[in-house]
Design a protein around this nucleic acid. Structure first.
Lengths: 344, 344
DNA sequence: TAGAGCCTGGACAACGTTGTCAACTCTGGG
DNA sequence: CCCAGAGTTGACAACGTTGTCCAGGCTCTA
């Protein structure tokens, strides 16, 4: 049980000064004990520790940070805390931070450039030591003063806009090309592409991969087969149904990210004839659906781990030119991507 | 582009003093401009703003916090940032925090009491205004000094141990009882229960619900039908297969949380005869599996929102006795829970 | 026993901000 | 022409911690 001293009113915390007074020692001695510094007699230390427990003292990290300059915390701006794709990334960053004794502050940009900016700058105002950003916007010059001031910054999943900075991302182009080539190898000639907003780097890269694969197979791409920016479920549904209808329906679909894939799976569950599907990003239970969903998998945890490790290497002081690290994707064959084209 | 002044070395940030010097005004005037306080001539304000941009000044929130006492941030200790069940809760807390102008610091306890404690106390040392905790441990007396010192604290999903505090949770008992009753209503008499670690409050509550439903139906419960604490996939698999084999196999399973449910789905996908299944917690794509998985759904987002709102109400100063808020669950019928008992 | 050196402890300034309060500059009315 | 009062502005202390530096007491050796 905790003894509440008189001066410790609601909302008031004891300080080192209080502890010092109670233990009958100097302020600095308390500081020494709290920080495990050498040069304190066991007896003095015990008196100080007793006072700490009695008062319920806890060091005020704000003051400490102010004095020391380093906060031992890093900020992570991601797109949506609740997006299952980013969850493992988030967790991986946390683990690396923890291993380095740092706390993690994070927030969702909700795919909004202004909100991304607000968050990142708020983190900087808290003087995080480093920043990991999954870009929502396409202009990151606002971070230049921060980076110049020494806040290490690493971008993940998408490159930074208009500034030169570290970035860790998956091979969207190569992954999409491989996925589409897989569909082509199974006999498809008319393949639809359902992608994210065109201002998102990965979206255009994946579209580029799609076009590359089609071109390499010597096939034309009908504009009607490409949808960019339909990201709300209803719109994805509408676009998919549009591509599957009409006189020259597609026989296969390539979905540009996990959310789109899931929506498409729902649409296809009600389709009259089987439609092949390959999705970008893996997702839980993809293997249990029938057919299992073939995907181009990214390793989100590795993305986060790599970015965080790079951040801490920078924080450890190794100055180095900004680098672009690209991680490979992996085609996971499960059934939906191997369906043959249905005769229309 | 940003002009780098001589004194702004790597890792050194301009302060209000620097801005004041450059703008040729007093320190306090800069503070006024930065905080949007009244009583500054438009002309002076412009000079200050110019200096701010030129130097790339950003207010140091550590110093501000030290001076003001409030940090405008709250801490969230959850079990696993990557667990899809907690992701919406996390996000909901973030949204409420954002609406109140607060930042969110979070971390995963990894179901480890000591790590939960470390995290919570680290947050307190950072002087978060409030704390939301999904308990991993069962003794939260270590938070008493913090709460006494005015850090508002709300527990979610599971009640606090050995202290009196606000808690927001789902009706685990009622939900499990309803889920099991649903299986009973479809003719099952031998039902297996696969739950989480027995020291977790929700786990025992759900088991209690299971036993209550069985008792109300006048049915005995064979010890072999109950598994508590098998949480790793292999162990869940082993337990499920054990219950499904032998002379008196169960005809239905009740899974105690989303991770267990998913594992059980995988096991049942390879079972020789159909086995009914109801799971606690909803999960994405549950409706697309065949059969769809019938679940007792909790509203994780609402759990988070409710907890965060309660926290901020406390922060706004309304003193009130700690309360226990219990949210209802909802049975979502999808097919797996309506399968009739297979003749053994 | 004196001097050197070590160990322990404390006084004080500094970190960058905000609250208090006083001083200064105007403007307009008496 | 002076003064009241309003509107701006800045000096200074304080927030709680840590780094620097010095004082005092001790042990050990010559």
């Amino acid at each position: 049980m905790v003894e509440i001293s008189p001066q410790q009113r609601y909302g008031t915390r004891p300080t080192m000064k209080d502890v010092a007074a109670r233990a009958g020692v100097g302020l600095k001695t308390v500081s020494r004990v709290v920080n495990g510094e050498a040069g304190v007699t066991p007896d003095t230390e015990r008196r100080v520790r007793d006072a700490i427990t009695a008062l319920g003292f806890r060091r005020n990290d704000s003051a400490r940070i102010l004095r020391k300059g380093r906060t031992a915390s890093i900020g992570l701006v991601l797109e949506d805390l609740a997006d299952p794709f980013y969850a493992p990334l988030n967790r991986a960053v946390e683990e690396v931070a923890r291993a380095h004794g740092a706390l993690l502050i994070n927030g969702s940009s909700a795919e909004d450039a202004e909100r991304e900016r607000e968050l990142a700058l708020a983190f900087c105002a808290r003087r995080v030591d480093g920043l990991i950003v999954i870009p929502a916007g396409s202009d990151h010059r606002y971070l230049e003063p921060e980076m110049a001031a020494g806040i290490a910054t690493v971008f993940v999943d998408r490159p930074a806009g208009l500034i030169d900075a570290d970035v860790v991302l998956s091979d969207s182009f190569g992954g999409a090309r491989e996925g589409v080539a897989h569909l082509l190898a199974h006999g498809h000639r008319r393949i639809g592409f359902l992608g994210d907003q065109p201002h998102i780097h990965t979206a255009t890269e994946r579209l580029r991969g799609y076009r590359a694969a089609m071109a390499e197979a010597g096939l034309p791409v009908d504009d009607a087969w490409v949808s960019l920016g339909a990201t709300a479920p209803e719109r994805v549904r509408w676009e998919a149904e549009r591509m599957l209808g009409g006189p020259r329906p597609v026989t296969a679909l390539f979905a540009g990210n996990n959310r789109v894939t899931v929506t498409v799976v729902r649409v296809l569950a009600r389709a009259e004839r089987p439609v092949a599907l390959v999705g970008f990003d893996d997702f839980e239970l993809a293997d249990l659906l029938s057919p299992g969903v073939t995907v181009v998998a990214q390793d989100a945890a590795r993305l986060g781990r790599t970015a965080a490790e790079r951040l801490f290497r920078r924080l450890d002081g190794v100055p180095e030119a900004p680098r672009r690290v690209q991680l490979p994707t992996r085609l996971v064959v499960r059934g939906s991507g191997e369906l043959p084209p249905a005769e229309s």
